[in-house]
């Protein structure tokens, strides 16, 4: 029952970009070094975040990445779902899939509740609040 490295590294990539907003763009190599993550793996994570519109790539010899959204608008739960596929504790019932009364009871009494509580936590955190910039007046700093 773990968040994978893809989810964890993806969030660290977003944090690193948010911490370096004063730079026009940040190279993946420098993030990889600061975060002690392999650059090749980070590239895979960056592709997912770029396709989902979280980060933008800057082309050129000194190219790199930059945040595509205001950190206050990046909800950690949503980013995690993009990176991980979903954040469910157990697979949803497939359409037409039958379950026994026992299974149904465990699902509704345990798993549904757990899923809801997990969502509540991760959907209440934004990249900005993670960085400690919950003050809306301060968040303009991160607007790019």
């Amino acid at each position: 029952m773990k968040i994978s490295t893809r989810g964890r590294y993806g969030i660290r990539l977003l944090i690193d970009l948010a911490e370096h907003v004063d730079e026009p763009h940040v190279s993946l190599a420098s993030i990889a070094e600061r975060q002690s993550i392999s650059a090749r793996y980070l590239e895979q994570v960056a592709v997912i975040l770029r396709r989902a519109g979280y980060i933008r790539s800057v082309k050129g010899a000194s190219g790199g990445y930059t945040l595509a959204r205001n950190p206050a608008d990046i909800i950690i739960g949503e980013a995690l779902r993009i990176l991980e596929g979903d954040m469910l504790i157990i697979d949803d019932l497939r359409p037409g899939e039958a379950e026994s009364k026992l299974q149904h009871c465990v699902r509704t009494t345990v798993f549904d509740r757990l899923n809801k509580r997990i969502s509540n936590v991760i959907d209440s955190v934004t990249l900005a609040s993670m960085l400690g910039t919950v003050d809306p007046d301060a968040s303009y700093m991160y607007f790019i």
Partner: peptide, 15 residues
């Protein structure tokens, strides 16, 4: 920076 969030998540799961 992520530790606080993961801790909050763990607490919620455990609770």
């Amino acid at each position: 920076i992520t530790r606080h969030t993961w801790t909050a998540l763990y607490k919620e799961i455990a609770d």
